[in-house]
Write a protein that binds this DNA or RNA. Structure first.
Lengths: 114, 114
DNA sequence: TGAATATATGAGCACCTATTCATATATTTT
DNA sequence: AAAATATATGAATAGGTGCTCATATATTCA
């Protein structure tokens, strides 16, 4: 499966495929929301239960659950079920890297306010 | 200038401020669109004029211009005016990094379906 | 000067999305 | 068993977003 994956990981030679572009857009879209970013920033320190997340941020349990489903579907977070609770965590280091880079970007941005 | 910038660039100690979260969401939002991603992928190889961009991708001049304005406003691209043409380019290396990381992320994503 | 070319912009609309509300499912406790 | 607790989910809706169309601005050319 996945026969035609060239090691074209640097994006410098040719345009990414239409499919790759859409996948990237999907991933960025997942990070393009304050609530989801807050969730991820919280998970940055380690796994958390759903209710715990909802409490820490000022967001309803339902809203958090909806957002976690979205993040789950894109392999941005993973989860672990323990009894009736579900602990969520960042999926991998790409996510960490991307979050940090962007955080740096906005700090370095001449932008007046912080 | 920029007196109060703590070297808190790693996001590991404390939650980013509300303002930082919103700024990050804005940045990601800018990357969360196929048209804008295609523009950026094109600029990855070097600067291009607006019409050139519109031709390469299958997008109207107006649409490209609208999107460039957005990217400009977030310091994701910069521009250079020569006569009546305007050449756009990626603003800095953060953008390059973020694009590459995300490209890697979606390639490494075992994800079968979406 | 006026015509041609390159880019920018405002308005309007179709589509998408994040939340709330109500409810469902799953697990533990009594 | 029923009640309590933790999470998930579908529907409805308000607000946001990207496109097109028409037009404005800026620059070069004849």
């Amino acid at each position: 499966m996945q026969a035609i994956i060239k090691p074209d990981t640097d994006m410098e030679d040719e345009m990414p495929s239409e499919a790759a572009i859409h996948a990237m857009a999907e991933s960025f879209k997942a990070l393009a929301d304050p609530t989801r970013l807050k969730i991820l920033a919280l998970l940055f320190d380690g796994e958390r239960g759903v209710g715990e997340i909802a409490d820490h941020l000022a967001v309803s349990q339902s809203a958090v659950s909806h957002q976690l489903r979205l993040l789950r579907g894109l392999d941005i977070v993973r989860y672990r079920k323990v009894g009736r609770e579900v602990y969520y965590d960042l999926a991998d280091d790409h996510v960490r890297d991307i979050l940090v880079r962007t955080f740096e970007h906005i700090l370095h941005e001449g932008g007046a306010d912080n």
